[in-house]
Simulated assay, not measured.
Amino acid sequence: MEAVVELAATRNPAEITTGQIAERMQLTQGALFRHFPTKDAVWDAVMVWTADQLTQRLDQAEARGLSPLLALE
């Protein structure tokens, strides 16, 4: 997931190919497609992972007594 997010930080996500994702992850496209049946499935997993990461950071901020907005800043 991190590899796809890193690619999306420097490229238009709509233009990122599965070949680029596989290369960034040091995999073949075949190996990538063993785990994800389609490119959309990759993006779905990335969105779930990203939401989980954000939720964890907000929960950690709340546990420290910070407002979520302050924690994000």
Score class of each variant (00 low, 15 high):
Asp40Pro: 02
Val48Arg: 15
Ala8Asn: 02
Leu58Arg: 13
Val5Phe: 05
Val5Leu: 14
Arg64Met: 11
Val5Cys: 08
Asp40Trp: 00
Ala63Trp: 05
Glu62Val: 14
Thr28Leu: 02
Leu58Val: 15
Asp40Gln: 07
Thr10Ala: 08
Val48Asp: 07
Ala41Asp: 05
Pro68Val: 11
Asp59Ala: 15
Asn12Cys: 00
Leu7Arg: 11
Asp59Leu: 15
Arg34Ile: 00
Arg34Asn: 06
Gly19Asp: 10
Leu7Glu: 03
Asn12Asp: 04
Thr18Ser: 10
Ala51Lys: 14
Asn12Ile: 00
Val42Trp: 05
Glu6Ala: 14
Ala63Arg: 13
Trp43Ile: 11
Ala3Leu: 07
Leu54His: 11
Arg24Asn: 07
Ala61Thr: 04
Asp59Pro: 05
Trp49Asp: 10
Ile21His: 01
Ala63Val: 03
Pro37Glu: 01
Trp43Val: 11
Asn12Leu: 01
Gln20Cys: 04
Leu27Asp: 00
Thr55Asp: 10
Leu72Lys: 15
Arg64Trp: 09
Ile21Glu: 00
Pro68Lys: 08
Asn12Trp: 01
Ile21Asp: 00
Thr50Trp: 10
Thr50Glu: 09
Val4Arg: 06
Leu66Ala: 10
Ala3Lys: 15
Leu7Lys: 12
Leu58Trp: 08
Gln56Pro: 08
Ala41Trp: 02
His35Val: 13
Leu66His: 14
Gly30Lys: 06
Leu69Tyr: 09
Thr10His: 12
Pro68Gly: 04
Pro37Met: 01
Ala45Ser: 11
Arg34Gly: 00
Leu66Asn: 07
Leu58Glu: 15
Pro68His: 04
Arg57Gly: 09
Asn12Ser: 02
Leu70Thr: 15
Thr28Arg: 06
Ala51His: 13
Thr28Asp: 02
Asp59Gln: 14
Gln20Ile: 09
Arg64Glu: 12
Met1Cys: 07
Gln60Thr: 15
Leu70His: 09
Thr38Pro: 12
Arg57Thr: 09
Glu23Trp: 13
Leu70Asp: 13
Phe33Met: 12
Thr50Val: 12
Ala9Thr: 03
Ala51Asn: 10
Gln20Leu: 05
Lys39Val: 00
Phe33Asp: 07
Met1Leu: 10
Thr55Met: 11
Ala31Gln: 09
Gly65Asp: 05
Trp43His: 01
Thr17Gly: 00
Val4Glu: 04
Ala8Thr: 10
Ser67His: 05
Pro13Ile: 01
Thr38Ile: 05
Val46Cys: 05
Leu54Trp: 10
Met1Glu: 15
Thr18Ala: 09
Thr50Pro: 04
Gln60Asp: 14
Ala31Trp: 05
Arg11Ala: 04
Met25Arg: 13
Ala71Arg: 01
Ala22His: 03
Val48Ser: 04
Val42His: 04
Gln26Thr: 12
Val42Ala: 03
Gln60Met: 10
Met25Gly: 04
Phe33Pro: 14
Leu54Cys: 13
Val5Asn: 07
Val48Asn: 07
Val46Gln: 06
Ala51Pro: 08
Thr28Asn: 04
Gly30His: 03
Gln53Trp: 13
Gly19Pro: 00
Ala45Val: 03
